[in-house]
Simulated assay, not measured.
Amino acid sequence: MNRMDLQVLRLFQAVARGATVTETAAQANVTQPALSRALDKIEREAGAELFQRVGRALRLTPVGTVFAGHVDALLEDYDRGLRAVQDMIDPEAGLVPLAFLHTLGTWLVPPLLSGFRDRFPKTRFELHQHGEEGLVRELLDGGVDLVLTSGDPGNPAIRWKRLLVEPLRLAVPPRHRLAGRRRIRLAEVADETFVLLRPGYGLRDTTERLCREAGFVPRVGFEGEEVETLRGLVTAGLGVSLLPLPQTATFPSSGTEPLAPHLTVTDVQSSRDIGLAWIADRALPPASAGFREHVLRSVDGAPAGPAAGRRP
């Protein structure tokens, strides 16, 4: 297989994973007609229609879905082969593909990376940020070796180890009737409007579970994709939300509106697990294996940040 064949398969993979033709062409620095010809070439070789047009987007046909799985496996094996060669040439200069929750990028991930780079300065990191569904998908697809996520994914193919228990607090608007409180029962806000992450995010599932334990179903007024967006919506008076404690260095108040108060919840165990996950039967390259051990040792031995507790 020559280099052009691999490039064509990577273009197919990008479109198969949901990227538009325009986005894929721009990312690969090719013209859209050239990309279309590449996709046509693959369909001719496969002898079947792999995509169908839905509006302006291309979606995989059932045959295309089967073919895409084999393409993913082939490219994953090829990339791992290249990494294995590089690791053999220089084990301390390997690449660690790592994915993590957006919220962990402000306090947990930086010290873990810097601590490892102190010991292995030539190690490179490829970093991805997602919600929980995206993290699991990247791990299963082979896009990353390790993920830092909240809660056990519950997939038999994935090994997960708890690192920390991170407290969750009830964020309320600065002028809310409860803003002067320090502690609260979650049941006290059963009639409030909640600001939540979209379905598919672990914090959304955790919030809904805790509300059920408190005896109610949250009334959702707004949905977002990032915790700091939710915090901003709460500060603006649009609802309440269960959130990790803010990192004030990266989330300053506007100057005219104070940061939303964050109250300790007393009637339910308001927290979430933070853990490290990897594929159970997939041997990690030396750099990723070393970083996994570094993470497991580091979190046990030092405080991870003002929002986190140690492993129970």
Rank of each mutant, 00 (worst) to 15 (best):
M4T: 11
L11M: 14
A16P: 02
R17S: 13
T22H: 12
A26I: 14
N29K: 14
N29Q: 11
S36A: 15
R37C: 10
E45N: 08
A48G: 07
E49P: 08
L50H: 00
V54P: 03
R56H: 14
L58F: 00
L60V: 04
T61N: 11
V66S: 13
A68Y: 04
A68C: 09
A68R: 02
A68M: 07
Y78N: 14
Y78L: 14
D79Y: 05
M88S: 08
M88Q: 09
P91E: 05
E92D: 11
A93C: 01
L95N: 02
P97R: 02
H102R: 15
T106H: 12
T106Q: 12
P110F: 12
R117M: 12
R117C: 10
P121C: 05
P121N: 04
R124N: 09
R124T: 09
L127P: 03
H128W: 09
H130N: 14
G131C: 05
G134P: 02
E138L: 12
L140H: 03
G143F: 09
V147Y: 02
G151C: 10
G154W: 12
A157V: 11
I158D: 03
L163K: 06
L164N: 15
P167S: 13
L168W: 00
L168V: 07
L170V: 01
R177D: 13
G180S: 11
R181E: 10
I184Q: 01
R185V: 06
R198F: 09
Y201I: 08
L203M: 06
L210F: 01
C211A: 10
R212N: 04
E213I: 08
G221A: 07
R231I: 03
G232M: 03
G232R: 01
L233N: 04
G237S: 07
G239R: 00
V240H: 00
Q247A: 15
T248Y: 08
P252I: 10
S253Y: 10
G255I: 13
E257P: 09
P258W: 12
A260L: 00
H262E: 12
T264K: 06
V268Q: 03
S271N: 13
R272S: 13
I274F: 02
L276M: 10
L276A: 07
L276Q: 06
A277L: 04
W278I: 06
I279M: 12
R282C: 03
A283Q: 11
A289W: 01
G290M: 04
R297S: 14
V299D: 01
A302D: 05
G305L: 03
A308W: 00
R310C: 14
